[in-house]
Design a protein around this nucleic acid. Structure first.
Lengths: 214, 214
DNA sequence: CGTTGCGTTGAATAAGGTCAAATAGAGTGG
DNA sequence: CCACTCTATTTGACCTTATTCAACGCAACG
């Protein structure tokens, strides 16, 4: 969802860090020191309960920010893992706060970014709380599409970096359900999907699916 | 979830505003100018989709903060409504930002607060995405209990300010399901519930319910 | 009192979940 | 390069859970 907002931060040009596919950017419980903006690649963030259940809370792509969960307690509350080889820009938080207090526009920018994260999460709550499986999957695809488009990638054709299980976890569905719905959408001619590569054929119909009053 | 954090803000002592039961503190789409801390009373926040579905995104009680959703776009994304006659403290945001940039501890406080909101939302996502109806209700009661306790009220005995339908919306369940689960928990001796007044009889068992590996 | 909103409960139904099997790739080591 | 393994995905059959529909009770209120 973040658009040009992170630009201001990126321009500060802090150090970079490379994270290999499957590796963690940070883990829950570890000390919080920096925020990260994704330069390239793809991440998932998730929480794990005591009893071992894992809930994906979001996917982050280039241009988006990661780490806001750590500010509250000075230690991270989420796990963030690269779904492909990725590069992030490291923004030491102390430095950012200091700078923000002296540059009002940066402060503003930063606050907007946090607020956006809150609003985004509430959108997910909406999705999880009041949509049916099919609507969730449609919403998920459209959201990805929109984010890719916002970054100059093709809106209608993209690669799913995550597994069906991760999608399911994010959407509050089982992986089989996700798979079935993909198949169904394909049969309906709304999308073409082969493994990880998706092609949105009928965006209008997908949007209609989302808003259906079941 | 907010504890003494809002204290720093409250101490700034901005103007107050009274909201009658059923009245809105603010509505989605209206311009954002201020944050609010709840001095007394009880609120619900919710979003509405184009097709009219309503999703409750949270309940706010004394000591908690409201309005963070408005920062991003300078207009509110949520609706906030009083569930009983309430009083809030109005904090003009421009003033807060200005002050924060000059008082590092206040800046820090404010950032923590936003981060806490993000973490809280992710907790709700966990709840909605990976818990069963019974676990959700247990989690809901325990969460309320904990928040009441944090404010010096009785942890085991409190009044539900919201209807079954609002609870259901928040938990991603239908009101009948919520009602049934209350009845079941009561039969199991975990709680005593009569209309809006709840008494938690076996907190340990409720916690166990939450963490069950179904 | 009648009405209205909220809550409870039962019976039937539908939506997703679970279990299981088959297939297809991707990555690995020889 | 090939065989082998492991993981991801798809699909079917069946089952469980929560929803839907409906009836009823209760309390507040004009």
């Amino acid at each position: 969802m973040q658009n040009a907002d992170t630009q201001a931060l990126d321009d500060l040009f802090f150090s970079r860090r490379t994270i290999k596919r499957g590796a963690s950017l940070y883990r829950a419980g570890t000390p919080f020191q920096s925020l990260f903006t994704v330069r390239s690649g793809f991440f998932k963030s998730y929480v794990v309960t005591e009893d071992g259940r894992e809930q994906v809370t979001g996917f982050q792509m280039a241009g988006e920010i990661v780490g806001l969960d750590g500010i509250e307690t000075d230690s991270h509350n989420l796990n963030v893992e690269a779904l492909e080889d990725s590069v992030v820009c490291v923004i030491p938080f102390a430095q950012l706060e200091d700078l923000a207090s002296r540059v009002p526009s940066l402060q503003r920018q930063f606050h907007r970014m946090m607020s956006r994260e809150i609003v985004r999460d509430q959108g997910v709550m909406m999705l999880l709380g009041s949509m049916h499986a099919e609507e969730r999957v449609a919403a998920f695809l459209l959201n990805l599409s929109q984010r890719f488009a916002a970054r100059g990638y093709a809106a209608a054709r993209f690669i799913l970096r995550m597994t069906r299980e991760e999608i399911g976890s994010y959407l509050g569905l089982k992986l089989e359900t996700v798979s079935r719905i993909f198949s169904k959408l394909q049969q309906g001619g709304l999308i073409a999907i082969d493994k990880k590569s998706v092609h949105l054929l009928n965006v209008t119909a997908l949007k209609a699916l989302m808003g259906r009053t079941t």
